[in-house]
Structure formats: C-alpha cells, structure tokens
Amino acid sequence: MHVELSNVTKVYEDPPQIVTALKDISFHVNEGEFLCIVGPSGCGKSTLLRMIAGLDHPSSGQIRFRGDLLTAPHSKISMVFQTFALLPWRTVIQNVEFGLEVQGRPKKERAEVAMDLLEMVGLKGSENLFPKQLSGGMKQRVGIARALAIDPEVVLMDEAFSAIDEFTAESLRAEVAEIHNETRKTFLLVTHNLPEAIELADRILVLSARPAKVKSIVGIEMERPRIQTDSEFVSIHRDIFALLQAELENSIMRHRLSGLKEFKRLRDMEDR
C-alpha cells in the first residue's frame, strides 16, 4: 500500500452552516498503479487530492504514505496543476529545476536532470523560452517535467488535462500513459472526464455527490493502448456513467429538498 486513507472526513465551517465535503473516505492506492478519481462536480475530489499533497488537512481520519502519517507535503509526493502554475519569470528549464533548487542540488545536476526530462516530454530546444511563449499543452508538459524532476514516488494530477484543448489533451494523455509505463511511479489523477479516466486508469474510484463517500471502485482490466470506440471501453463507460448519473440526480434532489426545507423554515419564522 503506497497511500492509504482511513475514515477521512472533511468539514468546512462557515457559521451558521457546516458543510461536510468528504465523509468517511477509506481507500488505498497500490504502488505503481494509475488510479483515477471521478465524481460529480464539486464533490470534493480535488480536496481529497490536496490533502494527499499536504496542502490541506482532514477534519478527522488519517492519510498514510508508506505507513507513515501524512501531515505536510512529502518530498516524494509531487503534483501537476490544472492551471499549470508555472512561475512566469522563470524560463522553461528554470521552472523544471524549481524543486531541485529548493532541495539545494548543485547546478550541474539540476541542469542534467531537467534537460533529460524536457527531452522526455518532448520540449528539447524550448528550455530557454518563457511560459508566456508556450501553448497550454506545452505548459503542462513543463508542469509534468517539473513534477518528475524531484523523482517522486507518487504523482498527483489535479484535473491536469482539463484546461487544455481536446486534441492536445489526447496526445498528452498518451504521453503520460507512456511515462507511467516506463517509470512505474504511482499516478493519482482527479478528473471529471470519464473517458479520460477509463483510458488511463488501472482502477477508478467513483465518489458520490456531497457529502462525498466512496461509491464504487472499479478495476479496469483492458489492455493498453485503450481505444475509446472499442466495445469493451464503451460498455465500461456506460456502467460507470450510470453510477455518476445516479449521483448527479441524487445531488439535484438533495438540493431541491434542502431548498424546500429552507423555504419552509423561513415561512414558519414569518408566521410566528
């Protein structure tokens, strides 16, 4: 077990409201696997990922990495961001080197590692460009290279392909699948794009609507490369989509009910 979540609950207090984003989430991530987390929008899947990244803390429950309790960012857990989050005043290679710089690695070593990674993500020759000169896809390649530079064991991807046009995203996904295959690092991708999850994942964790619980964990046995038009792909998509759709209706129902309750409450107050 590489990463383990036990009874993780996340509650936000905004008096007088108390919002439970995540409720009693328990699951584990196997070493070297590609796990995708899907769920309706706003269900808290990004919050979950941020907690594993050490950027947020559970209200109760535990997150363990290699058996040790996780309370802060870990040097072996890295992250790729939906917004790319490149530092604009740094060149491509300086961005990739960021984590290594923080660690105090010598200049020569940093440059070597960074150049290797830039070649791996297909950006050789662009190392001295600034982020403003890059397309979205290129920026995310830099983001991926930066995440890999510190040689992490776990790579967290928070909707990493969601801000990129579909064509570029498609090729980027294939590259990430390739990188996963070669490096055998543990990848954790949060996405609202179900076909994307099915294409990449060894297992898919389906979260329910808020308060999010683990609705289902689906293992994907298909051989790679996975074609979205294959009948097996389509059938898996249909099943999981049905799960998600039920959740979506659930959450709409719940909103309607809570809205109704609120309306009644206010009306009762007026009557008094």
Binding site: G54, P73, A85, F98, G99, V102, I150
Partner: peptide, 14 residues
C-alpha cells in the same frame, strides 16, 4: 499572486 503559486512552493517544500 495566484493561490496556485503558494501551492507550488508548498508541494516542493520551499
């Protein structure tokens, strides 16, 4: 300053 910049410095343990 975009919030994500702070996330970057946190994740990379600055």
């Amino acid at each position: 300053i975009p919030g994500d910049y702070f996330h970057v410095t946190s994740v990379f343990k600055a």
